[in-house]
């Protein structure tokens, strides 16, 4: 079946390894440009908010970090599920590679949110629906990584952690819709909704650039970590030789 060839190719470690290596610099360069414009636009070009003044500029790191915390977890869970169902080594490698990066973005979302909440809301932390579910996401990432490191055998680590990853995915929609499902202190979505963004273009364009840049940065980091994970999983393969000896 011709439509499935791409899927089979994705299951081939050497193909994925080489593709990841080729894509990394492209992702990195575009990410740097987009984040550079996003931060410059957010800090310098965008006007201050009518209510929050310059404190609103934290949105350019906070919102994209939060977006990445969800995107990385979704990537992780989908890859883990594919790994479980098709017994695909490369898929487990993607899941393992996404975890530390996703955890770092989740940590940043919580930290920058706290730094924004103190001056605007008047508190560093509160147990509202959005903040609590995002904290649980951080626990999920940390639990996933701890669970992996508890096994000496990589195949067992892959399968056991994949089950945790797939179960944990219910938290993703909970986080996103927490501000509409429950009364919360956190405001609703500005950009990530079907309706028009609640922001004029001068503020919006740098924010969209940040979203794009963070996503591509995640892709670049994922490619590098994925290569490491593939190398660790390949024992006797002959293609390893050509890669290792190139160095």
């Amino acid at each position: 079946m011709a439509t499935w060839t791409w899927f089979h190719r994705l299951a081939s470690p050497p193909y994925v390894y080489r593709t990841a290596a080729t894509l990394t610099p492209w992702f990195a360069v575009v990410a740097a440009l987009a984040i550079g414009y996003g931060f410059f636009g957010g800090l310098v070009l965008a006007p201050p908010d009518y209510q929050q003044k310059d404190a609103f500029r934290i949105i350019y790191v906070h919102a994209p970090s939060a977006w990445l915390s969800l995107l990385a977890y979704t990537t992780l869970a989908v890859a883990a599920a594919v790994g479980l169902v098709w017994r695909m080594k490369v898929a487990h490698a993607v899941a393992a590679a996404a975890a530390p990066i996703g955890a770092s973005f989740t940590f940043l979302a919580l930290l920058t949110g706290s730094l924004w909440g103190k001056p605007m809301w008047g508190t560093w932390w509160t147990w509202d629906a959005r903040l609590t579910s995002e904290l649980i996401l951080l626990f999920l990432y940390l639990g996933y990584m701890a669970l992996r490191s508890a096994f000496d055998d990589r195949q067992r680590a892959d399968r056991a952690s994949a089950v945790l990853a797939v179960v944990g995915v219910v938290n993703v929609p909970i986080i996103h819709f927490s501000v509409t499902w429950w009364n919360s202190l956190h405001q609703g979505s500005t950009v990530m909704k079907l309706a028009k963004p609640s922001m004029p273009g001068s503020m919006l364009w740098p924010l969209l650039a940040s979203f794009l840049g963070f996503t591509l940065l995640f892709a670049a980091l994922l490619c590098v970590r994925l290569r490491a994970e593939i190398l660790e999983r390949e024992r006797q393969a002959s293609w390893l030789k050509s890669i290792v000896e190139k160095r």
Binding site: L43, V61, P100, T112, L217, L221, V224, R225, R227
Partner: peptide, 24 residues
């Protein structure tokens, strides 16, 4: 608040880049 947010981002991303390279 603003500079701590951006500073923390830069630091964590630096660690991310170094960590990924080191893993490879």
């Amino acid at each position: 608040y603003v500079w701590a947010s951006y500073g923390a981002w830069c630091l964590v991303m630096l660690l991310n880049i170094l960590g990924a390279r080191q893993a490879l």
